[in-house]
Design a protein around this nucleic acid. Structure first.
Length: 483
RNA sequence: GGCGACAUGGCCGAGUGGCUAGGCAGAGGUCUGCAAAACCUCGUACGGCGGUUCGAAUCCGCCUGUCGCCUCCA
């Protein structure tokens, strides 16, 4: 389907909808960020690479996007036996440091790994602990409006007061209760009520004063408070992992819409999960491979290192709403494919002074936009790049560089670099020392070959190959690719 | 138990009521001093059983299988 307008699959309506921002050309976009108590893993990569392409494509379409992604640095309750101990505190106890050190350390590694994946930084990365007053204010409003109640220092959202509760996840309260595996806290009016503020005991490390006593905020309220602060009571896009649809996003909607009388978010987007041998990869399952371990190869399930570029390309080859099943075989195929793509890009980049037939570059742009307009189909976007790229390279190899080669270059730069973010990082060898040296060796090899000194010419070829420089003999001389 | 996804050629992975996805791997060929690269050609896939239709892998039903959410998690 060739879409001229951007369409987004909206989890709220379970349909693809034409994208119409609330205040064009401005777009407010919020994506749930990480809880910083451990290194980012492949699952984080899938989510943030997916939304990175959403962001980049919106900017490509010339929307003025304000992109907010929170950092959750308040711990929430762990699921196992450590009743009442939160993640940040647990990690801090294990490592014998202050919880804020834990947060700071993993915030650093999070951005380090995302930078490596070429994920653009959010415009604003607000921290939950930096927005306690905003969260308290919102809770007060909810109490005043009769949507929340204080039970001896624990403040709960009163789910029964919100007739729309469940509209995102398609649940109703009766069903949620009958099958629940959660022990119901005794001070709740309703099993589905969720905490806005929790009372802290003496041992609790992260706690703040509030109108309801010393405590700490519930998990969901930070996203409502911070998105409202930076994007307003209503904004365009809210993204996150599918597993957050319920309860997290459902609760965000309830809190925000009951506090503000305005539609919270227009388009809800959820990325699917990464699986490892068919099983969900997650921190709590202990089968998550950290991104840093991928980059270094230092993990018992990995046979070698995998570059961030390959990880990004691998992820973009599937749709964000499909699960991505990880295997090293699949990564290896992606690696070879990416290398080929880079070879195509570099053949185009190196071409100048086109005198051949002009390439219909509008077709490339139209094809690319058509698939991206269909809910950001990066997998098809990559296919479009291959199809047109190979066609153009064919012309170039035949010695008929398109007359509009500069236009071709800028189109590829926009699509492959600006939107997809998979531009070769080390391709521009022509003007630097490496490029000069390789060209020199190519000259020497050429002479050796005309003298039939194949021992020398093969040595040059093989040794360069070992250094990651691939020579390619063509009709009009020899070119090269860097690994 | 409730809710929801998905099952595509050797592998990964898009998509669609009739027309080529793409990548990886593989086969043959052109080129080459030999290779590599590039280029040309090739596989005619869509879980099973019914149904709707002129026509379904694409729509409907049932079945089987896998997975996710219902609890912190991207």
């Amino acid at each position: 389907m060739a879409e001229k307008e951007l369409h987004i699959y909206n989890t709220l309506t379970r349909k693809k909808e034409r994208f119409e921002p609330l205040n064009p050309p401005f777009v407010g976009m919020y994506v749930c960020g990480p809880t910083v108590y451990g290194d980012a893993h492949l699952g984080h990569a899938k989510s943030y690479v997916s939304f990175d392409v959403v962001l980049r494509y919106l900017r490509y379409l010339e929307y003025k996007v304000k992109y907010v992604q929170n950092i959750t640095d308040v711990g929430h309750l762990v699921g196992d036996g450590d009743e009442g101990e939160d993640k940040m505190a647990k990690k801090a106890r294990i490592e014998q440091i202050d919880p804020m050190q834990v947060a700071e350390q993993y915030t650093f590694t999070y951005f380090r790994d995302m930078d490596a994946l070429n994920v653009l930084r959010p415009d604003i990365a607000p921290r939950a602990t930096g927005h306690i007053p905003e969260q308290i204010a919102m809770i007060k409003t909810l109490i005043e409006r009769g949507h929340a109640y204080n039970a001896d220092g624990n403040v709960y959202f009163d789910v029964a007061s919100d007739p729309n509760y469940g509209k995102l996840s398609g649940r109703n309260l009766e069903e949620a209760e009958s099958g629940t595996r959660v022990d119901v806290a005794s001070d709740k009016k309703n099993a589905a009520d969720f905490a806005l503020w929790k009372k802290a005991d003496d041992e609790h490390l992260m706690k703040w004063d509030s109108p309801w006593g010393v405590g700490y905020p519930g998990w969901h309220i930070e996203c409502s408070a911070m998105s409202t602060k930076y994007l307003g009571q209503s904004f365009d896009i809210h993204g996150g992992g599918l597993e957050n649809q319920f309860p997290h996003h459902e609760c965000e909607i309830a809190q925000s819409e009951c506090a503000h009388d305005a539609q919270f978010v227009k388009y809800w987007m959820h990325n699917n999960m990464v699986t490892l041998e068919g099983q969900k990869m997650g921190k709590s399952l202990g089968n998550a491979i950290n991104l840093h371990e991928f980059f270094t190869g230092d993990h018992k399930l990995l046979t070698r290192a995998w570059s961030p570029e390959v990880i990004r390309f691998f992820l973009l080859q599937s749709h964000y709403r499909s699960t991505t099943d990880f295997s090293e075989d699949a990564l290896e195929a992606a690696e070879t494919g990416l290398k080929n793509l880079h070879s195509i890009v570099s053949a185009i980049e190196k071409s100048t002074a086109g005198k051949g037939e002009a390439y219909p570059i509008d077709n490339f742009i139209n094809d690319f936009e058509a698939v991206m307009n269909d809910d950001f189909n990066s997998a098809q976007g990559i296919a479009v790049v291959f199809e047109h790229g190979k066609e153009i390279r064919k012309q170039i190899t035949k010695g008929s560089v398109p007359a509009n080669i500069e236009e071709v270059k800028s189109a590829f730069k926009k699509v492959v670099d600006e939107v997809l973010g998979i531009w070769p990082t080390n391709s521009g060898g022509d003007s630097n020392l490496t490029g000069g040296l390789v060209e020199l060796l190519i000259e020497i090899r050429k002479d050796a070959r005309s003298n039939k000194d194949f021992a020398l010419s093969d040595k040059i070829r093989d040794d360069l190959k070992a250094l990651g420089v691939q020579l390619k003999d063509g009709k009009d001389g020899t070119t090269y690719d860097l690994d």
